[in-house]
């Protein structure tokens, strides 16, 4: 099975606070990796380094065989020009905890924006594709609404459609249900499960243990900037090897 994301000894500090202390992780094509861990464990930061929203201090990240944000020449890494980084990002979808939909644009324009301006698709084609995607997340009738007229769950589904519009090779989810009312969590998880069934490669940072158990191929438990353990959900969730994992799970289950 080919490796989609290859993270090697990634370090990252904010000022004097080291949030990633050497992360190694491989995500295989077509698999769902769920990252669990307490707040401040570095899981969101790790996710954000994968599409270069955060620069790493040390280590490398490759997606689909290409280094993210850098070009290697000899034994040096040269930072890529912004244009190149933006092009790489169009192949990596990112879904934010707070949706970050563009409030001044309609739902349809939110989805159409990136294919038209970043991929130079003809607008008509992009609109058709966007309507299909909105239909897929169950929001075909909301195309002309503005984001603030939607519920949180609907907004997050639009955000997923917006990420899918670039036809990414990889989808990253940063706590996609943490900002939602409990009754709205299900509708968003259903969309993500549906994507998982279709073989989309995904990394999901979440607190939803049930979702991890059901959907994940690999569960990664992080604490204090390190990966404590990883493996199939049956191992990590039901028979954790480390005390830290056990105590975390006992608190959230």
């Amino acid at each position: 099975m080919s490796v989609m994301v290859d993270i090697r000894s990634v370090h990252k500090s904010f000022g004097s606070l080291e949030v990633l202390k050497g992360i190694d992780l491989a995500v295989h094509t077509g698999e769902v990796t769920v990252i669990l861990g307490p707040s401040g464990s570095g899981k969101s930061t790790l996710l954000r380094t994968v599409n270069h929203l955060e620069k790493v201090d040390r280590g490398t990240i490759s997606v689909d065989g290409a280094l993210v944000g850098y070009r290697r020449s000899g034994d040096k890494l040269y930072e890529l020009p912004e244009r190149e980084v933006l092009r790489q990002r169009t192949r990596i979808g990112f879904v934010f905890q707070n949706f970050n939909l563009f409030p001044h644009l309609t739902v349809l324009d939110n989805v159409v924006e990136a294919p038209v301006s970043a991929l130079k698709r003809p607008r008509r084609e992009a609109v058709e594709a966007a309507r299909r995607l909105l239909d897929r997340v169950g929001l075909a009738d909301k195309a002309d609404a503005h984001p603030r007229q939607l519920s949180g769950g609907q907004q997050q589904r639009v955000a997923i459609a917006r990420a899918l519009a670039l036809e990414p090779r990889l989808l990253l989810f940063d706590e996609p249900t943490s900002a939602l009312d409990p009754e709205l969590v299900g509708e968003v998880l259903d969309v993500i499960k549906d994507l998982a069934r279709q073989g989309t490669t995904m990394i999901v940072v979440t607190h939803e243990i049930g979702f991890a158990r059901e959907v994940a191929d690999t569960v990664v438990f992080m604490d204090d900037g390190r990966i404590v353990e990883q493996g199939p959900p049956a191992d990590v969730l039901d028979a954790p090897q480390h005390e830290r994992t056990r105590s975390f799970l006992s608190k959230v289950l």
Binding site: F96, N98, N100, L101, S117, A118
Partner: peptide, 24 residues
Amino acid sequence: GQIEAAQALGLSRWRRWWRIVLPQ
């Protein structure tokens, strides 16, 4: 988060400025 979302979608600096930041 608006700028980050635009960056994550691969929008150019110019487009982020005129289409996303300035209207808001």
